[in-house]
Structure formats: C-alpha cells, structure tokens
Design a protein around this nucleic acid. Sequence first.
DNA 1: GAGTTGATGACACCGCATGACATCAGGCGA
DNA 2: TCGCCTGATGTCATGCGGTGTCATCAACTC
Lengths: 192, 192
Amino acid sequence: MGRWAPDAALRLERAALELFAEQGYAATAVPEIAARAGLTTRTFFRHFPDKREVLFLYERELPAVVASLVAGAPAFLSPLGLVMHGFEAMAAGPFEGRRAELQARRAIIGSDEGLRERELLKNVLLAGGITEALSGQGVGKEEARLVARYGVLVFEIALNDWLDGNSDTFSDVLHSTAYRMGQLVRPARQEE
Amino acid sequence: MGRWAPDAALRLERAALELFAEQGYAATAVPEIAARAGLTTRTFFRHFPDKREVLFLYERELPAVVASLVAGAPAFLSPLGLVMHGFEAMAAGPFEGRRAELQARRAIIGSDEGLRERELLKNVLLAGGITEALSGQGVGKEEARLVARYGVLVFEIALNDWLDGNSDTFSDVLHSTAYRMGQLVRPARQEE
DNA sequence: GAGTTGATGACACCGCATGACATCAGGCGA
DNA sequence: TCGCCTGATGTCATGCGGTGTCATCAACTC
C-alpha cells in the first residue's frame, strides 16, 4: 500500500476529537471532520457507520482483547473471577496511562445523549464478547450471560468513578467497586 | 378541551406500532405515521423528540412509578430489597397482563440497533429514578447508585427471559433471576 | 503493458429533525 | 357580545445525517 495514507480512520478520529473539543459535538458537521482529515464526507462514512462511531474507534478491539484475557485467565477461578481477572489486566495495562485522554473523551460523550446511548450499546457488545469467552472456558451459557453483564456493569461504574477522581489507580477503583457491589448484592451473613 | 382529539400521542403510537409491524421500523417514514394518525410530520415531533421515542411512550412514567413503589416499600428491607420490592409490584401489576403486547414491542426493538440503544438509555434513566427514591429512603448516595444499577440489570434480564418464554409468571422469573444472579456474584460460603 | 484491485471522489437523493410563522377553536374578561 | 389570549396544530424552509451509484486512479499482478 502507499497510494493512500493508511491511517484514514485515525486521521478522521483525531480531526473529530479536535473539532468536538473546540466547538462541541452537535455543532460539528461531518464534512468539517472529513475536510480537516483531508478526505470527503463519503469517505468518513466508509470508515464509520455513523457520526457517533468515530468516538469509539479506540475501543473497537476491546471485546476481543478482554475476551482473550478471560480465555487466558487461571482455570481455577470462578466465572466472575475470570471476568474480573480480564478487567484487572485491562485496568493495569491499556487504560492506566490514558486517564487524561479518556477524561476528554468522556466529557464529549457526556455532552450528548446520543453518544451516551452508543456507549451503553458498546458495553453490551463487550458483555457479548465476554460471554463467549466464558463459554469457551466451560461456563454454562446462562451463567456466562449473567456474569458477563454483571462484570461489565462493575467495570462501567468503576471506570466512571476512576475518571471522576485524579489520584486513585484504576485497579484500585475496580477492586473497591467490585467489593462494594458484592456487599450490596449479598450482605455478609453466616447462612448457606 | 375539545378542538383537537386529546390523545394525539396515543394515536401516533398506535399508528406507529401498526406500521412498524406491517412493514418494519426502518421502512416506515415519520410522515406515514403522522398521516395514519391524521396529523402532520411536524406534530409528530412535537409529541416525540425523535422517531424512536414513539416506541417508549408506554414506559414514560415507569421511573416515577417504580420510584414511588420503592418509596412505599417496608422500611426494614435492605436497599436491594427495596428495589426488588418495587420491581415485584411492577411484575405482578402492570406487566403481568401485557406479555403479548410487550413481545410485539420487543420484536420491533430487536430489529433495529438504534432502538436497542434507546432501550438501554431508558434503563439507565430508570436506574436514576430508583436512585433518588432510595436516597429518599435514607440510603447513601453511592450505595443507592450501585444498587439501582444492579437492580435494573436484574429486571432487564428477567424481563427478556420472561418474554422469551410463554408459561412462567414474570414474578417467578424475576425471583429466580435475582437469586441466580446473587449466587454468581457471591457464591455460597461460610466466611465473613 | 493490460487487466485487476481497492480506497477514494463526485453526485444525487431521501429521511430525520428543527426553526419560524400562520391558523384557528375555545376560554375568559370587559 | 366582542375581542383578546392561549395553545395545539399546519405550513414552509432549511440543514444535517446517511446511502446508493458510478467514476477515478495508483499499485499490484501476470
């Protein structure tokens, strides 16, 4: 390859993030983004199915990555343990260094209801990937479904809390969120 | 009142459901819906902020209803108990008789990704209403947030499972989902 | 060097959504 | 009774989002 710059999607993403930060998401038209990236509107929609999607390029591979982490987790862990193991690896790895970048993204997403919707859908898709990975680890389908959705909920809440603050480690927030959530779901007892 | 039929939104909803069932969501244009309801396109958008929203008219009051049920729940219950109490009342009340209707709606929603997104947003809004109700019951803010999101997740999964089947009661499905979920989050142990 | 491939450009087109102004029946006070 | 006000609706214009279709053209292949 060589005729076209190979990073069209990346250029579009950068241009979009800049423009959204400068003038807001709603006030930015797709032709503007494309122009700043040196491309046309039609090409934008070849790389992204719609305008919102350009904000989620960075997590396109997330389901597959988390799924592979779950697939590589110690087999002796409980289903939920497998999921949290995968998230721990994400928290300590790809996410830890990107707090500022993720905060900027979240500010944009928070400014538009349509973007929040899309983010929720992404979470469900993430849960879908995890469900498959759990099945591959021998977890039953129904169980996998429930655990994946629960795990993603914990991850989502922890991510937001982490981005709200400035000091804690994502791993720490994830841990404490998981613990607190567990306490609330099944308060400590002697029974069973 | 008398000059205009007072149920414009309802007529639009009915027309939309009919057309979506006949020819699909994407293949139905807003002017069609408006025409069948004896109104104009512009009026459609006065009653619904966008095309998708017409499918969620029925649950417009849901957050407030559940919130009031939570607010009226026995005070000795745990936070999660309060939420599940509210959902139980919904399951045994407004939802129980509407399985067919809800199945039809869900079939439409399932056919379009944008509609699924909107449904997810509705769930988050529902969680928001529950969070406030829990706060009013003396539950701490953070705790309320977590419990509300968890409860709504259980409700969402239970609702889908109930609509998948044909025999069980929604209350039963809700109960069993809550129980199974709890087991997965904190497997039975003697500790703590 | 001729054909093929694949990303892009150019153009037309439709549906969604909104702002602005007009319309008109009923309510209400003078 | 008259006339003003209110509020839901109609009408028109406009802009943006998204897609189908065909043309273009550099690189690769044989």
